[in-house]
Design a protein around this nucleic acid. Structure first.
Lengths: 201, 201
DNA sequence: CGAGTGATTGACTTAGATCAATGACCGTGG
DNA sequence: CCACGGTCATTGATCTAAGTCAATCACTCG
Protein backbone atom coordinates (compact mmCIF):
# COMPACT_ATOMS: atom_id res chain seq x y z
CA UNK A 1 0.00 0.00 0.00
CA UNK A 2 2.83 2.33 -0.73
CA UNK A 3 1.80 4.18 -3.86
CA UNK A 4 -1.58 5.39 -2.74
CA UNK A 5 -1.17 5.49 1.00
CA UNK A 6 -2.47 9.04 1.09
CA UNK A 7 -5.92 7.91 0.01
CA UNK A 8 -8.71 8.29 2.55
CA UNK A 9 -9.21 5.11 4.50
CA UNK A 10 -12.69 4.63 3.11
CA UNK A 11 -11.28 4.52 -0.38
CA UNK A 12 -8.33 2.35 0.43
CA UNK A 13 -10.68 -0.18 1.92
CA UNK A 14 -12.44 -0.41 -1.40
CA UNK A 15 -9.31 -1.82 -2.99
CA UNK A 16 -9.07 -5.54 -3.45
CA UNK A 17 -6.23 -7.94 -3.76
CA UNK A 18 -5.70 -10.45 -6.49
CA UNK A 19 -3.17 -13.23 -6.82
CA UNK A 20 -1.93 -14.10 -10.29
CA UNK A 21 -0.13 -17.17 -11.46
CA UNK A 22 2.78 -16.68 -13.81
CA UNK A 23 1.35 -16.13 -17.27
CA UNK A 24 -2.11 -15.29 -16.03
CA UNK A 25 -3.88 -12.36 -17.62
CA UNK A 26 -5.27 -9.52 -15.50
CA UNK A 27 -6.98 -7.66 -18.31
CA UNK A 28 -6.92 -7.56 -22.08
CA UNK A 29 -6.65 -4.84 -24.67
CA UNK A 30 -10.21 -3.78 -25.40
CA UNK A 31 -11.68 -4.84 -22.05
CA UNK A 32 -13.77 -2.23 -20.31
CA UNK A 33 -11.66 -0.40 -17.75
CA UNK A 34 -12.66 -1.06 -14.17
CA UNK A 35 -9.63 -0.31 -12.00
CA UNK A 36 -6.05 0.82 -11.75
CA UNK A 37 -3.51 -1.40 -10.05
CA UNK A 38 -0.54 -1.55 -7.81
CA UNK A 39 1.96 -4.38 -7.88
CA UNK A 40 2.55 -5.84 -4.45
CA UNK A 41 4.66 -8.81 -5.46
CA UNK A 42 6.10 -10.13 -8.66
CA UNK A 43 6.15 -8.49 -12.04
CA UNK A 44 3.34 -7.62 -14.41
CA UNK A 45 3.94 -6.96 -18.06
CA UNK A 46 1.92 -4.52 -20.09
CA UNK A 47 1.77 -5.76 -23.65
CA UNK A 48 0.35 -4.20 -26.75
CA UNK A 49 -0.48 -6.21 -29.80
CA UNK A 50 0.71 -4.36 -32.86
CA UNK A 51 -0.48 -5.19 -36.33
CA UNK A 52 -0.26 -8.91 -37.18
CA UNK A 53 -0.65 -9.70 -33.44
CA UNK A 54 3.03 -9.18 -32.84
CA UNK A 55 3.27 -8.55 -29.08
CA UNK A 56 5.29 -5.55 -27.92
CA UNK A 57 6.19 -5.09 -24.27
CA UNK A 58 5.27 -1.60 -23.14
CA UNK A 59 6.31 -1.87 -19.56
CA UNK A 60 7.22 -4.28 -16.85
CA UNK A 61 5.76 -3.16 -13.54
CA UNK A 62 7.59 -4.03 -10.34
CA UNK A 63 6.54 -4.14 -6.70
CA UNK A 64 5.37 -0.77 -5.39
CA UNK A 65 4.50 0.49 -8.83
CA UNK A 66 1.15 1.74 -9.98
CA UNK A 67 0.06 0.77 -13.46
CA UNK A 68 -2.79 1.35 -15.89
CA UNK A 69 -3.36 4.83 -14.47
CA UNK A 70 -4.65 5.94 -17.84
CA UNK A 71 -7.52 3.50 -17.41
CA UNK A 72 -9.13 6.12 -15.19
CA UNK A 73 -9.67 8.29 -18.22
CA UNK A 74 -10.34 5.74 -20.91
CA UNK A 75 -13.24 3.44 -21.71
CA UNK A 76 -11.08 0.47 -22.66
CA UNK A 77 -7.70 -0.87 -21.70
CA UNK A 78 -5.15 -0.15 -24.39
CA UNK A 79 -2.96 -3.14 -23.70
CA UNK A 80 -2.88 -6.53 -22.01
CA UNK A 81 -1.63 -7.00 -18.46
CA UNK A 82 -0.01 -10.39 -17.93
CA UNK A 83 1.80 -11.65 -14.86
CA UNK A 84 5.42 -12.24 -15.80
CA UNK A 85 5.95 -14.14 -12.56
CA UNK A 86 3.58 -15.23 -9.86
CA UNK A 87 2.29 -11.92 -8.58
CA UNK A 88 -0.09 -10.14 -6.28
CA UNK A 89 -1.76 -6.91 -7.34
CA UNK A 90 -4.05 -4.51 -5.54
CA UNK A 91 -6.93 -3.15 -7.60
CA UNK A 92 -8.37 0.31 -6.98
CA UNK A 93 -11.76 0.46 -8.64
CA UNK A 94 -12.13 3.31 -11.03
CA UNK A 95 -15.59 4.59 -10.07
CA UNK A 96 -14.99 5.42 -6.41
CA UNK A 97 -11.60 6.91 -7.25
CA UNK A 98 -12.98 9.28 -9.84
CA UNK A 99 -15.89 10.19 -7.61
CA UNK A 100 -13.50 11.03 -4.81
CA UNK A 101 -11.40 13.20 -7.10
CA UNK A 102 -14.48 15.10 -8.24
CA UNK A 103 -15.70 15.59 -4.70
CA UNK A 104 -12.38 16.58 -3.23
CA UNK A 105 -10.09 18.78 -5.33
CA UNK A 106 -7.32 18.45 -2.78
CA UNK A 107 -7.34 14.71 -3.34
CA UNK A 108 -7.29 15.23 -7.08
CA UNK A 109 -4.30 17.51 -6.67
CA UNK A 110 -2.54 14.94 -4.58
CA UNK A 111 -2.98 12.42 -7.36
CA UNK A 112 -1.77 14.88 -9.98
CA UNK A 113 1.28 15.46 -7.85
CA UNK A 114 1.95 11.73 -7.72
CA UNK A 115 1.68 11.53 -11.49
CA UNK A 116 3.93 14.58 -11.97
CA UNK A 117 6.62 13.09 -9.77
CA UNK A 118 6.39 9.84 -11.61
CA UNK A 119 6.99 11.75 -14.82
CA UNK A 120 10.04 13.43 -13.38
CA UNK A 121 11.49 10.18 -12.21
CA UNK A 122 10.92 8.55 -15.59
CA UNK A 123 12.47 11.45 -17.47
CA UNK A 124 15.50 11.33 -15.26
CA UNK A 125 15.90 7.60 -15.83
CA UNK A 126 15.56 8.09 -19.54
CA UNK A 127 18.11 10.87 -19.53
CA UNK A 128 20.41 8.57 -17.64
CA UNK A 129 20.14 6.00 -20.38
CA UNK A 130 21.54 8.53 -22.80
CA UNK A 131 24.86 8.24 -21.01
CA UNK A 132 26.70 5.53 -22.88
CA UNK A 133 29.61 4.84 -20.58
CA UNK A 134 28.79 2.44 -17.76
CA UNK A 135 31.08 4.32 -15.42
CA UNK A 136 29.57 7.71 -16.04
CA UNK A 137 26.05 6.35 -16.04
CA UNK A 138 26.62 4.79 -12.67
CA UNK A 139 28.17 7.97 -11.28
CA UNK A 140 25.23 9.97 -12.57
CA UNK A 141 22.89 7.55 -10.85
CA UNK A 142 24.77 7.70 -7.59
CA UNK A 143 24.73 11.49 -7.60
CA UNK A 144 20.98 11.49 -8.05
CA UNK A 145 20.11 8.56 -5.82
CA UNK A 146 22.21 9.71 -2.90
CA UNK A 147 20.06 10.80 0.01
CA UNK A 148 19.75 14.58 -0.50
CA UNK A 149 22.68 16.42 1.01
CA UNK A 150 24.64 13.23 1.47
CA UNK A 151 26.87 11.30 -0.87
CA UNK A 152 25.61 7.87 0.02
CA UNK A 153 23.08 5.86 -1.87
CA UNK A 154 21.53 3.18 0.20
CA UNK A 155 20.72 0.12 -1.83
CA UNK A 156 17.60 -1.70 -0.82
CA UNK A 157 17.35 -4.28 -3.59
CA UNK A 158 20.09 -6.45 -4.97
CA UNK A 159 22.88 -5.31 -7.26
CA UNK A 160 21.16 -7.26 -9.99
CA UNK A 161 18.12 -5.05 -9.60
CA UNK A 162 20.29 -1.97 -9.69
CA UNK A 163 21.93 -3.22 -12.88
CA UNK A 164 18.52 -3.65 -14.48
CA UNK A 165 17.47 -0.18 -13.44
CA UNK A 166 20.64 1.20 -14.97
CA UNK A 167 20.20 -0.80 -18.13
CA UNK A 168 23.45 -2.71 -17.65
CA UNK A 169 24.17 -6.39 -17.27
CA UNK A 170 24.99 -7.30 -13.71
CA UNK A 171 28.49 -8.32 -14.76
CA UNK A 172 29.13 -4.89 -16.20
CA UNK A 173 27.85 -3.31 -13.01
CA UNK A 174 30.09 -5.45 -10.80
CA UNK A 175 33.12 -4.59 -12.86
CA UNK A 176 32.32 -0.91 -12.93
CA UNK A 177 31.82 -0.87 -9.18
CA UNK A 178 35.10 -2.69 -8.68
CA UNK A 179 36.92 -0.26 -10.96
CA UNK A 180 35.45 2.80 -9.29
CA UNK A 181 36.37 1.45 -5.91
CA UNK A 182 39.91 0.71 -7.03
CA UNK A 183 40.18 4.27 -8.31
CA UNK A 184 38.96 5.54 -4.97
CA UNK A 185 35.90 7.17 -6.51
CA UNK A 186 33.44 5.29 -4.33
CA UNK A 187 33.41 3.29 -1.18
CA UNK A 188 31.14 0.34 -0.61
CA UNK A 189 29.57 -1.07 2.49
CA UNK A 190 26.76 -3.52 3.03
CA UNK A 191 24.36 -0.63 3.47
CA UNK A 192 25.18 1.36 0.39
CA UNK A 193 27.60 3.09 -1.93
CA UNK A 194 29.32 6.33 -1.07
CA UNK A 195 30.70 8.83 -3.53
CA UNK A 196 34.06 10.15 -2.41
CA UNK A 197 34.88 13.79 -3.02
CA UNK A 198 36.92 13.86 -6.18
CA UNK A 199 37.97 17.02 -8.01
CA UNK A 200 38.53 15.35 -11.38
CA UNK A 201 35.85 13.25 -13.08
CA UNK B 1 0.20 25.50 -28.13
CA UNK B 2 0.01 21.81 -28.57
CA UNK B 3 0.31 20.37 -25.11
CA UNK B 4 -2.43 22.29 -23.38
CA UNK B 5 -4.67 23.17 -26.29
CA UNK B 6 -7.68 21.79 -24.41
CA UNK B 7 -7.46 24.57 -21.83
CA UNK B 8 -10.31 27.08 -21.78
CA UNK B 9 -9.48 30.10 -23.86
CA UNK B 10 -9.52 32.37 -20.86
CA UNK B 11 -6.76 30.34 -19.30
CA UNK B 12 -4.71 29.95 -22.42
CA UNK B 13 -4.71 33.68 -22.83
CA UNK B 14 -3.11 34.00 -19.43
CA UNK B 15 -0.05 32.23 -20.71
CA UNK B 16 2.94 34.29 -21.72
CA UNK B 17 5.81 33.75 -24.06
CA UNK B 18 9.44 34.11 -23.25
CA UNK B 19 12.48 34.03 -25.50
CA UNK B 20 15.68 32.62 -24.06
CA UNK B 21 19.20 32.96 -25.35
CA UNK B 22 21.36 29.88 -25.30
CA UNK B 23 22.62 29.43 -21.79
CA UNK B 24 20.03 31.69 -20.24
CA UNK B 25 18.35 30.54 -17.05
CA UNK B 26 14.57 30.36 -16.79
CA UNK B 27 14.42 29.47 -13.12
CA UNK B 28 16.71 28.15 -10.45
CA UNK B 29 16.52 25.40 -7.90
CA UNK B 30 14.98 26.98 -4.79
CA UNK B 31 13.10 29.75 -6.63
CA UNK B 32 9.46 30.07 -5.72
CA UNK B 33 7.35 28.24 -8.27
CA UNK B 34 5.21 30.51 -10.41
CA UNK B 35 4.42 28.61 -13.60
CA UNK B 36 4.76 25.46 -15.64
CA UNK B 37 6.14 25.66 -19.16
CA UNK B 38 5.91 24.40 -22.66
CA UNK B 39 8.81 24.45 -25.08
CA UNK B 40 7.89 26.07 -28.37
CA UNK B 41 11.33 26.19 -29.92
CA UNK B 42 14.77 25.01 -28.96
CA UNK B 43 15.75 22.84 -26.04
CA UNK B 44 15.63 23.50 -22.33
CA UNK B 45 17.66 21.48 -19.89
CA UNK B 46 16.53 20.67 -16.38
CA UNK B 47 19.54 20.44 -14.13
CA UNK B 48 19.88 19.45 -10.54
CA UNK B 49 22.89 20.36 -8.48
CA UNK B 50 23.93 17.37 -6.44
CA UNK B 51 26.25 17.63 -3.46
CA UNK B 52 29.42 19.60 -4.20
CA UNK B 53 27.51 21.54 -6.87
CA UNK B 54 28.10 18.85 -9.43
CA UNK B 55 25.42 19.47 -12.08
CA UNK B 56 23.34 16.51 -13.21
CA UNK B 57 21.05 16.75 -16.22
CA UNK B 58 17.59 15.49 -15.35
CA UNK B 59 15.92 16.09 -18.65
CA UNK B 60 16.22 17.86 -21.92
CA UNK B 61 12.85 19.21 -23.03
CA UNK B 62 12.11 19.51 -26.72
CA UNK B 63 9.54 21.47 -28.71
CA UNK B 64 5.98 20.54 -27.82
CA UNK B 65 6.93 19.24 -24.41
CA UNK B 66 5.58 20.41 -21.11
CA UNK B 67 8.05 20.69 -18.26
CA UNK B 68 8.15 21.53 -14.56
CA UNK B 69 4.64 20.13 -14.11
CA UNK B 70 5.50 19.26 -10.54
CA UNK B 71 5.90 22.97 -9.85
CA UNK B 72 2.11 23.10 -9.59
CA UNK B 73 2.30 21.12 -6.39
CA UNK B 74 5.52 22.37 -4.87
CA UNK B 75 6.58 25.61 -3.23
CA UNK B 76 10.02 25.71 -4.85
CA UNK B 77 11.54 24.52 -8.08
CA UNK B 78 13.64 21.42 -7.51
CA UNK B 79 16.07 22.06 -10.33
CA UNK B 80 17.40 24.71 -12.67
CA UNK B 81 15.97 25.27 -16.12
CA UNK B 82 18.55 26.48 -18.60
CA UNK B 83 18.17 27.00 -22.32
CA UNK B 84 20.45 24.54 -24.11
CA UNK B 85 19.94 26.43 -27.36
CA UNK B 86 18.17 29.66 -28.18
CA UNK B 87 14.61 28.84 -27.21
CA UNK B 88 11.09 30.10 -26.79
CA UNK B 89 8.91 28.85 -23.96
CA UNK B 90 5.30 29.47 -23.04
CA UNK B 91 4.62 29.94 -19.35
CA UNK B 92 1.31 28.93 -17.79
CA UNK B 93 1.03 30.65 -14.42
CA UNK B 94 0.41 28.33 -11.57
CA UNK B 95 -2.30 30.23 -9.69
CA UNK B 96 -4.95 30.42 -12.41
CA UNK B 97 -4.25 26.85 -13.46
CA UNK B 98 -4.77 25.44 -9.97
CA UNK B 99 -7.84 27.59 -9.46
CA UNK B 100 -9.33 26.28 -12.67
CA UNK B 101 -8.64 22.68 -11.66
CA UNK B 102 -10.35 23.26 -8.32
CA UNK B 103 -13.33 24.92 -9.91
CA UNK B 104 -13.75 22.42 -12.71
CA UNK B 105 -13.17 18.74 -11.94
CA UNK B 106 -13.53 17.85 -15.60
CA UNK B 107 -10.58 20.08 -16.39
CA UNK B 108 -8.60 18.53 -13.59
CA UNK B 109 -9.37 15.12 -15.02
CA UNK B 110 -8.25 16.21 -18.43
CA UNK B 111 -4.93 17.24 -16.98
CA UNK B 112 -4.57 13.99 -15.09
CA UNK B 113 -5.20 12.16 -18.33
CA UNK B 114 -2.44 14.14 -20.03
CA UNK B 115 -0.05 13.25 -17.24
CA UNK B 116 -1.08 9.59 -17.31
CA UNK B 117 -0.46 9.37 -21.03
CA UNK B 118 2.87 11.02 -20.63
CA UNK B 119 3.75 8.35 -18.09
CA UNK B 120 2.78 5.61 -20.48
CA UNK B 121 4.84 7.07 -23.25
CA UNK B 122 7.87 7.44 -21.02
CA UNK B 123 7.58 3.90 -19.70
CA UNK B 124 7.37 2.57 -23.22
CA UNK B 125 10.46 4.50 -24.25
CA UNK B 126 12.30 3.24 -21.21
CA UNK B 127 11.27 -0.32 -21.92
CA UNK B 128 12.52 0.16 -25.44
CA UNK B 129 15.93 1.11 -24.13
CA UNK B 130 16.15 -2.26 -22.45
CA UNK B 131 16.44 -3.82 -25.87
CA UNK B 132 20.14 -3.95 -26.54
CA UNK B 133 20.23 -4.81 -30.20
CA UNK B 134 19.88 -1.80 -32.46
CA UNK B 135 17.94 -3.85 -34.98
CA UNK B 136 15.42 -5.16 -32.52
CA UNK B 137 15.11 -1.84 -30.77
CA UNK B 138 14.30 -0.16 -34.05
CA UNK B 139 11.78 -2.83 -35.00
CA UNK B 140 10.12 -2.48 -31.62
CA UNK B 141 9.92 1.25 -32.17
CA UNK B 142 8.47 0.89 -35.63
CA UNK B 143 5.82 -1.51 -34.39
CA UNK B 144 4.74 0.98 -31.74
CA UNK B 145 5.10 4.16 -33.72
CA UNK B 146 3.23 2.91 -36.74
CA UNK B 147 -0.10 4.63 -37.16
CA UNK B 148 -2.54 2.26 -35.40
CA UNK B 149 -3.70 -0.46 -37.73
CA UNK B 150 -1.06 0.36 -40.29
CA UNK B 151 2.53 -0.72 -40.61
CA UNK B 152 3.95 2.62 -41.57
CA UNK B 153 5.61 5.08 -39.26
CA UNK B 154 5.65 8.55 -40.65
CA UNK B 155 8.75 10.42 -39.66
CA UNK B 156 8.25 14.07 -39.02
CA UNK B 157 11.67 15.01 -37.69
CA UNK B 158 15.05 14.04 -39.10
CA UNK B 159 16.64 10.64 -38.80
CA UNK B 160 19.08 12.21 -36.40
CA UNK B 161 16.21 13.06 -34.09
CA UNK B 162 14.91 9.53 -34.39
CA UNK B 163 18.33 8.18 -33.51
CA UNK B 164 18.42 10.33 -30.40
CA UNK B 165 14.98 9.15 -29.39
CA UNK B 166 16.10 5.57 -29.81
CA UNK B 167 19.31 6.16 -27.91
CA UNK B 168 21.49 5.27 -30.87
CA UNK B 169 24.07 7.25 -32.76
CA UNK B 170 22.80 8.39 -36.11
CA UNK B 171 25.41 6.29 -37.84
CA UNK B 172 24.17 3.18 -36.12
CA UNK B 173 20.62 4.05 -37.12
CA UNK B 174 21.55 4.57 -40.78
CA UNK B 175 23.33 1.25 -40.89
CA UNK B 176 20.50 -0.56 -39.19
CA UNK B 177 17.98 0.94 -41.57
CA UNK B 178 20.12 -0.03 -44.52
CA UNK B 179 20.49 -3.59 -43.24
CA UNK B 180 16.78 -3.98 -42.56
CA UNK B 181 15.98 -2.67 -46.00
CA UNK B 182 18.46 -5.02 -47.61
CA UNK B 183 16.85 -7.91 -45.74
CA UNK B 184 13.46 -6.79 -46.97
CA UNK B 185 12.14 -6.22 -43.46
CA UNK B 186 11.25 -2.59 -44.10
CA UNK B 187 10.69 -0.27 -46.98
CA UNK B 188 11.60 3.37 -46.92
CA UNK B 189 10.10 6.36 -48.62
CA UNK B 190 10.47 10.06 -48.06
CA UNK B 191 7.33 10.04 -45.95
CA UNK B 192 8.10 7.22 -43.62
CA UNK B 193 9.21 3.69 -42.90
CA UNK B 194 7.03 0.66 -43.56
CA UNK B 195 7.28 -2.68 -41.83
CA UNK B 196 6.87 -5.51 -44.29
CA UNK B 197 5.02 -8.60 -43.22
CA UNK B 198 7.63 -11.09 -42.23
CA UNK B 199 6.94 -14.43 -40.58
CA UNK B 200 10.41 -14.89 -39.04
CA UNK B 201 12.02 -12.24 -36.85
C1' DC C 1 22.77 -31.17 2.96
C1' DG C 2 21.50 -29.93 -1.85
C1' DA C 3 19.05 -26.32 -4.48
C1' DG C 4 18.60 -21.71 -5.55
C1' DT C 5 20.18 -16.98 -5.66
C1' DG C 6 23.43 -13.29 -5.36
C1' DA C 7 28.22 -11.60 -5.94
C1' DT C 8 32.32 -11.85 -8.33
C1' DT C 9 35.91 -12.64 -11.71
C1' DG C 10 37.93 -14.48 -16.11
C1' DA C 11 38.13 -15.08 -21.22
C1' DC C 12 36.30 -13.97 -25.53
C1' DT C 13 33.51 -11.69 -29.05
C1' DT C 14 31.02 -8.33 -31.16
C1' DA C 15 27.87 -4.72 -31.91
C1' DG C 16 27.86 -0.26 -31.78
C1' DA C 17 30.55 4.05 -30.81
C1' DT C 18 33.95 7.05 -32.77
C1' DC C 19 36.38 9.33 -36.29
C1' DA C 20 36.37 10.61 -40.95
C1' DA C 21 35.01 11.63 -45.62
C1' DT C 22 31.57 12.50 -49.24
C1' DG C 23 27.51 14.03 -51.70
C1' DA C 24 22.93 16.18 -51.73
C1' DC C 25 20.35 19.92 -50.55
C1' DC C 26 19.14 24.03 -48.88
C1' DG C 27 18.90 29.11 -47.81
C1' DT C 28 21.16 33.46 -48.16
C1' DG C 29 23.80 37.24 -48.75
C1' DG C 30 26.91 39.61 -51.81
C1' DC D 1 22.73 34.09 -59.88
C1' DC D 2 26.13 31.61 -57.64
C1' DA D 3 29.41 30.56 -54.14
C1' DC D 4 29.46 29.31 -49.47
C1' DG D 5 28.40 27.61 -45.04
C1' DG D 6 25.36 24.63 -42.72
C1' DT D 7 22.69 20.46 -41.91
C1' DC D 8 21.30 15.88 -43.22
C1' DA D 9 22.13 11.32 -45.11
C1' DT D 10 25.32 7.87 -45.94
C1' DT D 11 29.24 4.78 -45.92
C1' DG D 12 33.99 3.19 -44.61
C1' DA D 13 37.64 1.90 -41.15
C1' DT D 14 38.86 1.16 -36.57
C1' DC D 15 38.54 0.34 -31.70
C1' DT D 16 36.84 -0.71 -27.38
C1' DA D 17 33.55 -1.01 -23.87
C1' DA D 18 30.14 -3.84 -22.71
C1' DG D 19 27.71 -8.09 -23.69
C1' DT D 20 27.96 -13.20 -23.46
C1' DC D 21 29.37 -17.51 -21.64
C1' DA D 22 31.24 -19.73 -17.88
C1' DA D 23 33.11 -20.91 -13.38
C1' DT D 24 33.52 -20.15 -8.35
C1' DC D 25 32.26 -18.91 -3.67
C1' DA D 26 29.26 -17.39 -0.06
C1' DC D 27 24.58 -17.70 1.91
C1' DT D 28 20.20 -18.94 3.05
C1' DC D 29 16.31 -21.79 3.28
C1' DG D 30 13.64 -25.71 3.56
Amino acid sequence: MRALDWLPTALRERSTCRALKAGETLFRQGDKTFAIFEVEQGRVRLIRHAVDQHPVVLHSARPGELFAEAALFAERYQCDAVAATAARVRAYPKGPLLAAFRADPALAERFMAVLAHQIHALRARLEERNIRSARRRLLHHLALAAAPGSRTMKLDGTLIDLAAELGLTHEALYRTLAALEKDGAIRRSRAGITLRRHPAL
